[in-house]
Amino acid sequence: MKDVIMETVQLNKAFSLGETIYAVNNVNIKIERGSMNVIIGPSGSGKSTLLSLLGGLDRPMSGDVLLEGQSYRALSEDQLALLRRRKLGFVFQFFNLIPHLTALENVMLPLQFINTPHKAAKRRGLELLERVGLAKRSRHLPLQLSGGEQQRVAIARALANRPAVILADEPTGNLDTKTRDEIVALFQELNQQEKQTFVMVTHDPSLSKFADQLIVMQDGCVVSP
């Protein structure tokens, strides 16, 4: 029996832009532990909205998300935040590093949230930066790093709390080809060596080809699988 780590149950999210638009319409998907899942689809098909719902960053109009059996619907905002803190990691297209914190401080941030002692957090931060090849850049501010380096820091930050699932929204969308390949290789490595579960939204076919599960979306609905 497959180990499902995350699933959605008839998930709905609609917006009103003059008329009602279902960005996510009755979506039922299952994410297996340790798998690489890629969500693709044309612009406006609801990929990012689905990712936001999976991450508990937004509330659905109806339906539910289950992470390791825990229903989001039953959780208050504070409880949902705790769940994000302990079980989810995020990687954004525009990196979203905190500009006045160094690379190391950015990576240590999620560890602060779970009250990791400073020394242990620093050790873990440095270890992660080394893992993504940026040990020597730990004291640099995000503005002193290239796009690819910033994304590596963001990935290290996402890994900090050993999350059950990493959700990535267009992680290579803002990178040049060479850097994109490096980041893709890093994702693959983390997935294959450390059995890290990924759910990624992308337009990038180079990521799609490594997917264990390819989720194709159109007009808010999952059309494949």
Partner: peptide, 16 residues
């Protein structure tokens, strides 16, 4: 706003 969004996504609770 961007920083707050990052903190929220990393799990900073509304009460915090």
């Amino acid at each position: 706003k961007r920083e707050l969004s990052v903190l929220k996504s990393l799990g900073l609770a509304p009460r915090e």
